[in-house]
Design a protein around this nucleic acid. Structure first.
Lengths: 252, 252
DNA sequence: CGTAGGATTGACCCGACTCAAGTTAAGTGG
DNA sequence: CCACTTAACTTGAGTCGGGTCAATCCTACG
């Protein structure tokens, strides 16, 4: 677990130049809000690929917003079986559970180098007091996460292996595209088949055989250690999933 | 789908006499908060067993808090396969997603007669403005839901049928006990094996055979159309689950 | 007494798992 | 520049957990 973590006091991305703000999907912040968030922000965290950002059973005084990079949230059973519960992408709030529960109940690991905004959990209440609209946004974000979890549960519980995989790939590609992670370039997920397996509740071997079916249908391609998505729409259709993209989202 | 719905303007449970407030698990509200919630509250909704409180794809101007009764939240695949994503018990907030997303993404159905507090979704923002602590509580509740979903996903994705069922029963019994749904009486879940199946991602037949194993081990008993839980601790242990009961909870 | 919604059971089958070998590709040190 | 290592992807064989189909049995209820 190589985990080169740098906490910068100097800021590469001051809030006025927040890379998220440039995206059309995110709602524009009012000057006062921007100002508050700027003070709320404690620093930036840059981690390598494969780093553990949060660990289950730990207390962490921070709350994060992903600025760039890919990661995933997972839980472990006592004997080591792993379940990935969701992925984290730019704009996602990480560690909210830890702010409210005592200990955090899941771990977060990166799939690529990642930069996060660091906030102090203890100051969340002051955000709630001074900026109700931002507080509302936090709830909105939490609610969106809940929505995604519902979808994932539906998938793992009721879809066949092929449908599940198709859904997962369409889901990830479409989330990533919305936050501009490909713009122009081929949609490639920086993911390993083991991650797919642990997300879908399947074994690695069976996942591999299922991936092969999608490759044979020319829906995806396996490229330098990642999954290149060739046809999101047909994948979504195959899984019976309706993307229903929310057009405008808040972020903190 | 018999669905006798009564919206009362007269209140059987004015906020000062809220049955939830009597429970030790819930945090006490300050007089001002109580006063606000009392005005925020629009009425009460009483529905029969088997009623649909919320329907997927619908827009509902309300937000609810369960006062009494059992229910469950579920999603459907286009071809009718059903996945129950979680259960709703007293103190749970229902319909928060609908307040924030456009359309609600899941349905809610009751397992027993149920009474709910009705709020106006449009006024949630004024709650955020006037009572930051309550807003914080709303987020807390959403975050707790997220935590439960993570657990459920872990279960469906990575546990064996027997472990899954043991976990589910222990989970439900322990949640219900905490909000005083049994006090003294035998812990009986008003649930059908079809519900278990649709929660666990198993077929009805296999669920039945798995239930039988738990009955043989004398961990549960099947009683007048419900599941009587005989030994929560051994069920939890069997599934490798640690209850980690949160001692004090907010509610709205 | 008839009906319907659950709960049960047995027979049989298939999707997904495990085990066990490879094969590739990307480092890494000599 | 090459041998060695390691992580990730493949593939085949055999097994098994859980699925489907099809009865049957209860029991509450009209």
């Amino acid at each position: 677990m190589k985990e080169e973590v740098k906490l910068r006091s100097e800021r590469k991305y001051p809030c006025e130049k927040c890379p998220l703000a440039r995206q059309d999907v995110f709602r524009k912040l009012k000057p006062k809000e921007l100002d508050f968030i700027s003070r709320f922000k404690r620093g930036e965290l840059s981690v390598d690929k494969g780093a553990t950002v949060l660990a289950e059973g730990t207390r962490n005084p921070h709350l994060y917003t992903v600025l760039m990079g890919w990661g995933f949230r997972y839980k472990l059973l006592p004997d080591g079986r792993r379940q990935i519960v969701n992925y984290v992408l730019p704009g996602d709030l990480v560690g909210l559970q830890g702010t409210l529960m005592d200990e955090i109940q899941h771990s977060v690991e990166t799939l690529s180098p990642m930069t996060l905004c660091v906030f102090e959990r203890g100051e969340l209440l002051s955000l709630y007091r001074e900026h109700p609209e931002l507080a509302y946004d936090v709830t909105w974000i939490a609610s969106r996460e809940e929505c995604m979890l519902d979808e994932n549960l539906l998938s793992v519980g009721r879809r066949s292996a092929l449908e599940r995989l198709a859904y997962l790939i369409a889901f990830l590609a479409s989330r990533a595209r919305i936050v501009g992670m490909f713009n122009g370039a081929a949609a490639t997920l920086p993911i390993t088949q083991q991650h797919f397996a642990d997300t879908l509740g399947l074994s690695l071997v069976h996942t591999n055989k299922t991936v092969r079916k999608l490759i044979d249908r020319k829906l995806v391609r396996w490229r330098d250690g990642g999954c290149e998505v060739l046809d999101i729409d047909r994948l979504a259709e195959l899984s019976g999933w309706d993307p229903s993209d929310d057009s405008l989202r808040p972020f903190i």
